[in-house]
Design a protein around this nucleic acid. Structure first.
Lengths: 209, 209
DNA sequence: TCTTCTGGGTCATGGTCATACCCATGCTTG
DNA sequence: CAAGCATGGGTATGACCATGACCCAGAAGA
């Protein structure tokens, strides 16, 4: 994950393109709409999620600066499978077919990293399927906690609702599970923040059968 | 789906490669192992699935001739996320990094269809996540039935176990759901086969909220 | 300061589905 | 034709988790 923070190959895509700024909470693209562009996120973070007709949402991933967004739907030419919203203020350039063709013709070596990037998305989604098929709610929560990049002071800044949306359980269940973890001495809760006090134990729990 | 049956761009990958034959049930690659090749399926069909430590299996997709297999793990260089086994007798060529590099250098126009193919995999997995997050078991089963290519006589050749593994429910639940569908007059059951007697009604059920 | 809002904790209730049995049926092989 | 085995189907039980309801605490805004 960390190596993606280096200069990405996507810089070539963004050349001469003026980025657009998105305010926190602003929609970047909407599930079901035509995907004639994809995005290269220059700064900020954004969430992509799928939503049901009843309004339930399932967060697929949180994109950070340097990531691509919406490439999958773009490449296979079908409607967007997910929506994306800015979490923090974001700057992103959008790339259309004409531009991609041009850049890819000029820099064919870009194809491999793009395939690699798309493959990572496949892996991410496979993990979701694996989790929902085989892991109970508490393990899914544990794994999600371990996947969040902590703040400098070690705090995991997230609400129960967010965790629930990410792993596919209700807010209530998250609350119950976190209570259990606290009782085990694996974490401590602050206001809208969590602190792992025994990450090793939590990890052991998360990855046992 | 049907257009994939035409001549695929992957023929270029297979040139001068001698295909290997897999007997029905034979393992093609194993979840968790290193992914130093991927496969181009020339004939037959194969299933890819993820499995838990307890032996439960979740079928992700059934590959047919003309498909690629195992590209995702190959491209991001991590262990295989799924296993694959031959369903019928299969012929497939395996492509390693050295060969891919060579072909891609000679035919850069191959990159786009590969991106497109990988993107379809992303969509497929997103549908799995969507289904498991938002759809009850009976709708998932209905959708799966509608997605099976029927035999010439209209029969859907599948066992309850297969259906269950594909949509992530137990054999028992499949049995219960199919019983309900039969009672509704939407389908008729034969030995190891199903016949849709009112596909329209089933479709309506499958795609209502 | 008072109000409002959002996030968090907890309960009872119920739905959904897995598990573990059991039995029925129809291929299949000796 | 018989035995054997795999598949299909039924049922009771219980685990798991969502739902709706309610209350509380801290933050934010007037």
């Amino acid at each position: 994950m960390a190596e993606r923070r280096e200069t990405t190959p996507w810089a070539l895509l963004a050349q001469d393109q003026s980025p657009r700024t998105y305010a926190p909470g602003q929609l970047i693209y909407l599930q079901g709409t035509e995907a004639d562009t994809f995005f290269y996120l220059l700064s900020g973070s954004a969430r992509s999620y799928i939503s049901s007709e009843t309004g339930d949402e399932r967060v697929l991933t949180t994109h950070r600066s340097g990531d691509l967004m919406g490439e999958a739907a773009f490449f296979d030419g079908c409607p967007r499978v997910s929506s994306a919203v800015a979490v923090t203020e974001c700057r992103a350039v959008s790339i259309d077919r004409e531009r991609l063709d041009r850049v890819l013709r000029a820099h064919p070596e870009l194809a491999l990293p793009m395939l690699q990037y798309l493959a990572r998305t496949v892996r991410l989604l496979s993990d979701h399927v694996d989790g929902m098929s085989f892991r109970p709610a508490d393990q899914r929560v544990a794994r999600y906690l371990l996947s969040i990049p902590p703040e400098p002071n070690g705090a995991l800044r997230c609400t129960h609702e967010e965790i629930g949306a990410a792993v596919g359980v209700s807010r209530v269940t998250v609350s119950r599970v976190l209570g259990e973890f606290t009782r085990q001495g694996w974490l401590r809760t602050g206001y809208r923040a969590l602190f792992l006090t025994d990450a090793a134990a939590l990890r052991a729990f998360a990855f046992t059968d």
